[in-house]
């Protein structure tokens, strides 16, 4: 597959070089502003207190991975993310399908759903901590409330936008009510769920990390919380760095999965390589 576009003028190698240069410059600036090389020792100490020191940060990251301390925390965060995503998606799919196909129920539920969605869900974290304790469950619950609405609205939209002709065609081909649900509404709705995969996985991740940060005993969010408690800014930034890398990996995996699941979707411009 190849896209023809105006901005394809820069070659891939050059692009990577420029991108590396950008990061390099940023790190160099950070380094120079926090070490006593160009600036006085006192002011370097001062900035390092607020921004950390790049070499220290990298040292912490390497220690985490080499010493193996980070893995159980990463595993917990990943587990919370996946659980929140799975539960939120199934709930959103079921309730979305149900409400989209039951006009009365959806008319009754509508204002409450709007209100719930408008509410900043993060403030529920303390309540979930009380209900579910400081373990995995309270983080999953927070993630679920975030994922649910994304999936729900997409499914609702997906059902509403099923082509009436495709529907009529299926009826003429002999589909019963249940078969319409299974063979038309469900595939149509799931395709909308898949197209919101990036957002909902991202939200599940946010739910997990924020939940950990607000009170937990394990997870990457907990590491950051702990470091912050002793003003260890280097570890805080290391945690943020690890989380960012992790989020990128997650996003990459989602892209791969998405490409597999949505093969039937037309792409903007699609032509096979010769």
């Amino acid at each position: 597959m190849r896209k023809r576009s105006a901005d394809a003028r820069i070659s891939r190698g050059r692009l990577a070089l420029y991108q590396a240069l950008l990061v390099g410059t940023l790190f160099a600036f950070w380094y120079l502003m926090t070490e006593p090389i160009l600036i006085s020792e006192a002011s370097a100490k001062n900035t390092a207190f607020f921004f950390g020191r790049p070499l220290q940060v990298i040292k912490v990251v390497i220690e985490w991975f080499v010493g193996g301390k980070i893995y159980p925390h990463l595993a917990i965060t990943l587990w919370e993310t996946l659980l929140a995503f799975a539960i939120g998606s199934v709930l959103g799919l079921t309730i979305g399908l149900w409400l989209a196909l039951a006009p009365t129920a959806s008319a009754i539920a509508e204002p409450y759903i709007t209100a719930f969605n408008a509410m900043p869900r993060v403030i529920l974290a303390p309540i979930f901590a009380v209900w579910f304790g400081l373990g995995v469950l309270s983080k999953v619950a927070l993630g679920v409330t975030l994922v649910f609405f994304i999936v729900f609205f997409n499914v609702y939209q997906g059902v509403k936008e099923v082509s009436p002709v495709v529907l009529a065609n299926a009826r003429m081909l002999g589909a019963s009510k249940r078969q319409l649900l299974r063979y038309i509404y469900l595939p149509s709705a799931t395709s909308w769920v898949f197209s919101s995969l990036h957002t909902s996985v991202g939200m599940a991740f946010v739910g997990a990390v924020v939940g950990e940060y607000l009170g937990s005993a394990r997870g990457v969010g907990y590491l950051i919380l702990q470091a912050e408690g002793v003003f260890d800014i280097n570890t805080v930034i290391a945690g943020i760095l690890v989380l960012t890398l992790f989020a990128l990996l997650l996003d990459f995996a989602v892209t791969k999965i998405e490409a597999r699941l949505l093969v039937w979707r037309p792409k903007a411009a699609e032509a096979a390589e010769l």
């Binding site: 081909l173 019963s176 038309i184 039937w264």
Partner: peptide, 25 residues
């Protein structure tokens, strides 16, 4: 049997799966 004026195939199904649909029902 009804042939519609506009597109009526299920876009998420291959040609074969679309033709099978009625028998599947």
């Amino acid at each position: 049997g009804y042939m519609f004026q506009s597109e009526a195939l299920m876009p998420w199904r291959s040609a074969l799966a679309n033709v099978i649909a009625g028998l599947e029902f």
